[in-house]
């Protein structure tokens, strides 16, 4: 039977009324570890630089005046240690029957919705550091150039794999005629 029920805008499913899933709690630790490693490398770089500068300016006696370089790691450290604590809780996603909704952003809060029947392919990836914390990134690609992909960084490896197979299944079942 052909059905054509009337639809009122109020009755449409609302993308806002979903239960949001937040990122894996290990993701904050993974981010902080990344920051610590970054700060450490800046510290090493500054130390080496101090030695080089001290050697280069030994004769002129200007070696002492480069102490302000130590400020550099401090400037890097504060935001990179604080930012993950602020930004990660803002990231969340929700899976519905026919689409995926993703929200993120501290200053610019964006909610993005991608219907499964518009997804072209799905990619799962993880860096060595991600793998230590069992974290993975899921990339959803749609057609069209300008930022045609959505990156969900911070899922646990298992969730990412489950999502990937689920989405691929949905994409496959929604093959349309031209």
């Amino acid at each position: 039977m052909f059905e054509n029920a009337e639809i009122t805008i109020e009755d449409l499913p609302q993308a806002e009324a979903v239960e949001w899933q937040s990122m894996d709690p290990r993701f904050v630790r993974r981010k902080l570890t990344g920051s610590v490693l970054g700060i450490a490398s800046v510290l090493v770089a500054v130390t080496v630089l101090q030695y080089i500068l001290a050697a280069a300016f030994e004769d002129t006696g200007l070696g002492r005046s480069f102490g302000w370089l130590w400020l550099l790691p401090v400037i890097v450290a504060v935001p990179s240690l604080v930012w993950p604590l602020i930004s990660v809780p803002k990231v969340a996603y929700a899976i519905r029957d026919k689409d995926i909704i993703y929200k993120s952003g501290v200053f610019w809060r964006t909610v993005t919705a991608i219907p499964f029947n518009r997804i072209q392919h799905v990619e799962k990836s993880s860096t060595p550091l991600d793998r230590r914390f069992h974290i993975a990134t899921l990339q959803l690609f749609t057609a069209g150039g300008s930022g045609g992909d959505l990156n969900i960084h911070g899922l646990s490896t298992r969730t990412a794999e489950k999502l990937r197979t689920f989405i691929l299944d949905r994409v496959g079942s929604s093959i349309e005629q031209a």
Binding site: F107, W108, R109, A143
Partner: peptide, 9 residues
């Protein structure tokens, strides 16, 4: 449409 986003400052 391929996807939609709503952004708020």
């Amino acid at each position: 449409v391929q996807r939609i986003s709503i952004t708020q400052t």
